[in-house]
Every structure is written in C-alpha cells, then in structure tokens.
Design a protein around this nucleic acid. Structure first.
Length: 479
RNA sequence: CGGGGCGUAGCGCAGUCUGGUUAGCGCACCUGCUUUGGGAGCAGGGGGUCGAAGGUUCAAAUCCUUUCGCCCCGACCA
C-alpha cells in the first residue's frame, strides 16, 4: 500500500495527481496553467513521438516547422475557426519595448499560418498532395487546467495536408485516424473507439471531425486523437489554389490531424493502480530493473553487482536498447528501492540476492499483476521478453474488458439518464439531434456525444431525444 | 468567467476568531547506531519572518485596505 498516493476509490482526481507526483512525471510551473514535464514524463512523450513519427514517415509525411506567432488577422479569415478559438487565444501585443501594430496570436493550432504558406507553395496539380507534419507546442488559455490533460501550453503533433480532390482528402483523414488507432492500441495499450464527431463537437472550421475515444479507469471518456476533413474551408480562406490538368483553377481540399501530450494522461489513467504508475512495456524507457539485494557489502560488490550487470547487458542486447537498469542503491533498504520502481511504473522488476545466485535463478516480479516467478539465468532473456509481451497484452486486454463492462445501451432518453447516473461509462444510443439537443443532453446528464463509431456508421435508428432518424452514437462524460 | 477554499520550512498542516517573550507539529532532509526480500526504529541536527504592499498599534502570522497567486466545483476546450 503506497502511503503517498490517495486511493483511487477515495478521490480519483487526487489519485491521478498523486501518481504523477510519485512517478515524478510532471510538476506545476510558476506560470498559470502550465506544467513542467520532468525527465521521466518527457521520456514517455519521446516514446510516443518515436512510434507516431515512424508511422507518419511510412505514410509519406515529412516534418517541418512553422512559427509560434501567427498574425492575429489570420484567424478572422475563417469565421467558424475564429469563433471557436478566440476565447482561448493568447496574444503578444508588445515586443522590443514597443506596442505592435498588429498583435500576434500564440498558436493554438496552425491551420491558418500553414494555409497561408500552402497558398504560396501550391500552384499546380503537380505540387499536390502536400503532406506535412509539425511537432511543436501550442497554447490555449485554459480557465481550468489539469496536468497532461489540459494545460495552457502543451506539446503535440499537427499534420496538415492539401489534396487535389475531396475523395483523396477524405481518404487521408481516415487513413491518419487509422494510423492513430494502430499506434495507440499497439504501443500505448489503450483500446479506443474510432468514430465521427457530432456537429456540436466538431473542430471549428472542419467539415467532418473524427476522433479516437478512450475510456479512463473512472469510466469517463478521453479524446486521444483527432483527424479533420476541412473541405475547402481553409483553402478558400487562404486561397490555396492549383491549376488542374485541364487548365482550370481549383481550390485544394485540406485535412489536419493531431495528438498531444494528453496521451500521457490517458496512459496514466488507463493502466495505473493505487501503488502508482503502470507503464506498458512499449512505452517505458526502463522496461526492466534489476535490484541486487544484500546486507553484506562484499557479496553485493563481488558477486551480486557483477551478475546484475552481466544479466543487464544480455537483456539489453536481447531487447535491443538501453532499457534495463541496475539499481545500485545499497544504502537504501530493499522495500524502499522496490517502491520507487513500483511507483515509476517499471514493467518488470528482477530481484537478485544470495538466494537467487545459489539457486541459479532470478526472481521476476510483474508490475501489472504483482506476480513473481523464479527464472533460471539461462532462460532469463527469452522469458523476460515473453513476460514483457504478456504485460503489454494484459494491459490492453484488461483495459478493453473494463470498457466493455462499462458500456451499455439506452433505448430511451430516460434510460440514457438512468445509466449515466447509476453506472456512468459509455452509453450507446441512436441520436439524430442538433447541437442544441447536444447541449440539452449535456445540461441534463453531464454527458456529451463522444462519437459515432465508424463500425456503426450504417446503424441507423430512432433518436432517443427527437424521434428522428439518427446513427448509433456513444455518449459519456468526458475529460 | 461565476461559486467555494487556501497561501506559515521541500511537502502537508496547527496557530489567526480572543494581537504580546527565541513561530510550532508530522513527513521529507542531514549525522550516528541498530535494522534490511513490499515504504524500519531510536537519538541528535539543519531549515521558515508567516504570498506581496500599505495601514492601525507600544507590539501584527493574528486586526483593516489593496494586490498577486494557487487549488476545488461549474460553464468552455486536445
């Protein structure tokens, strides 16, 4: 039992913050609504970046960088866009000791400035498609922030593409949604539901918005990634035009898609327990920690440490990389040492004492289940590899099981209200209402339509609120 | 931005209502001894001028005014 972490059942928000603190992932910065991502937390982001970036490169995208500051007037060019973002845009009004003639917005997202640049770069159908991604920080002034989930400044990736046809842009939008699904499920072990956002939840300026929705361990939903089909809205606002093969001048069709450091929050809230953080092996930079244990200095130095280092070297070779650490803190008691690794979410702990040396075995303890197994040194490499795979799978499977157990069907509005109040979780229901109807539901139940699952796109029924025809939609309270 | 709460040691708090000698406590930290396989025990020790500014008073953490910041609950959002 961790003494520095509030039990999850007692206070979920506090538990979440305690886990972050105990694992040293992040800390509050002396700037309103901002946080410092500490090395352990940043390492998770680097892992995410690694998997994501690799996937984008494979789908033909390239990285570039656009300015942090955007002429404020750019936002006014797309009506819905400015309306959607105005409340949370921070601006720079002074520089060099003087007031600027036109304020700069600190980017909350880069559709506008990238649209402006694309209009300069795209002239011919031969210039298309443009497939650019940017890794950067953005700022959205938040009234209320929570570490990783909602901070005024956050790190993300935003892909921006321009295409000759609507079909191709739509295809791109869904392709990247699928890339998100794969990376998030396979590496972060977060089971997600891909679907389309309802009108009320759509990105300001988009024609269609798609989303990856995950369920946290308090049964609330969290949007883990979004992909937008922007139609010609931004192309028209910024005059991204090209001359087609037949000589006519056409507006491009654009998309944008993003995932952020919020994913770290999702990982924390999906997998961790009352003892602290639990990281899926593919996310953890330290996948295995070897803890030599002895009260005897000579045994520790002459026998245990060399053996630990030898095993670590072999494991690193087997697993490919520096992901096995040796804990040499002999001045701490074993229990203390174990706990630091438990709280940091290290997937596998290997305990090595005289007992183990004499038996020719190492004691392997899983973080996800707490199960311990004694493994012969000869079999350690393949067994550890297998254990890590099992842990990865187990985390995904148990999260998915949890989601299924907390997903229900509502056949009427009363049923929706009752389920949300009594059980929470995801509720499936036919919905064919307007943004006003969405607002009403949110007011009365606290829940919003999270998405219309792609797999249910043709599943049409009678809307529980309006009685009109509508697709099967997932409702939930959300972060 | 509305409602509530809080700023006293690194963290968590007491003290504030009923101003008064060197501002306390727990955890953490440092030293020593004993311990050591899921967070040890004892002893000793270092560290704060009480968010900031102004005012009242012989005297302010405590009373008054102003101000800054943070947290929680709502409305808005990756």
């Amino acid at each position: 039992m961790a003494r520095n972490i509030t039990p999850r059942s007692e206070n979920y928000s506090q538990w979440y913050l305690d886990v972050i603190k105990a694992a040293e992932l992040a800390d509050y910065a002396p700037v309103r609504g901002c946080m410092v991502i500490r090395p352990t937390g940043y390492a998770i982001w680097e892992q995410i970046q690694h998997y994501m970036d690799e996937a984008y490169k494979k789908t033909g995208h390239v990285n570039a960088y656009f300015p942090l500051l955007i002429p404020y007037s750019f936002f006014n060019k797309e009506a819905e866009h400015v309306e959607g973002f105005a409340p949370e845009v921070a601006t720079v009004t002074h520089a060099g000791g003087e007031e600027l003639e036109e304020p700069y917005a600190i980017r909350p997202t880069s559709e506008t400035i990238i649209g402006y640049m694309y209009s300069k770069w795209v002239h011919s159908w031969r210039d298309l498609p443009v497939l650019i991604n940017q890794w950067c920080n953005v700022m959205r002034w938040e009234k209320r922030s929570r570490l990783f989930l909602r901070t005024s400044e956050f790190l993300w990736q935003e892909g921006h593409t321009a295409h000759a046809t609507a079909e191709e842009a739509r295809e791109e939008t869904l392709k990247m949604l699928e890339v998100y699904r794969q990376v998030i499920e396979d590496n972060l072990a977060l089971p997600i539901i891909c679907g389309e956002k309802t009108e009320g939840e759509r990105f300001p300026g988009a024609v269609n918005t798609y989303t990856c929705e995950a369920m946290m361990s308090d049964t609330k939903a969290l949007q883990a990634g979004t992909s937008h089909f922007l139609g010609q809205n931004f192309a028209k606002a910024f005059e991204i035009k090209y001359q087609s093969k037949d000589g006519g001048v056409e507006f491009c069709w654009t998309t944008s898609w993003g995932t952020s450091t919020r994913l770290i929050g999702a990982i924390i809230m999906t997998h961790s327990d009352d003892d602290g953080l639990i990281l899926p092996p593919r996310v953890a930079t330290t996948k295995v920690v070897i803890v030599p244990i002895s009260q005897d200095e000579h045994i520790a130095d002459d026998i245990l440490l060399p053996k630990a280092k030898e095993l670590a070297a072999k494991l690193n070779e087997e697993l490919g990389g520096l992901c096995v650490a040796v804990d040499t803190r002999f001045d701490m008691r074993p229990g203390d040492r174990f706990f630091t690794h438990i709280q940091k979410g290290v997937p596998l702990r290997i305990e090595l004492g005289e007992k183990e040396i004499n038996a020719g075995k190492a004691r392997c303890v899983r973080r996800d289940t707490g199960e311990a197994a004694d493994v012969a040194f000869d079999a350690l490499c393949p067994t550890v590899k297998e254990l890590l795979n099992n842990i990865q799978d187990n985390l995904y499977n148990r999260a998915k099981k949890f989601r299924l157990e907390h997903t229900n069907r509502a056949n009427s509005y009363d049923e929706l209200k009752a389920i949300l109040e009594e059980k929470g979780g995801f509720v499936e229901a036919y919905f064919g209402g307007t943004p006003d109807d969405e607002r009403l539901i949110k007011e009365e139940t606290g829940a919003t339509p999270r998405c219309i699952p792609l797999t249910e796109a043709n599943n049409i029924g009678k809307c529980i609120l309006t009685g009109k025809e509508g697709p099967l939609t997932i409702f939930a309270k959300a972060y």
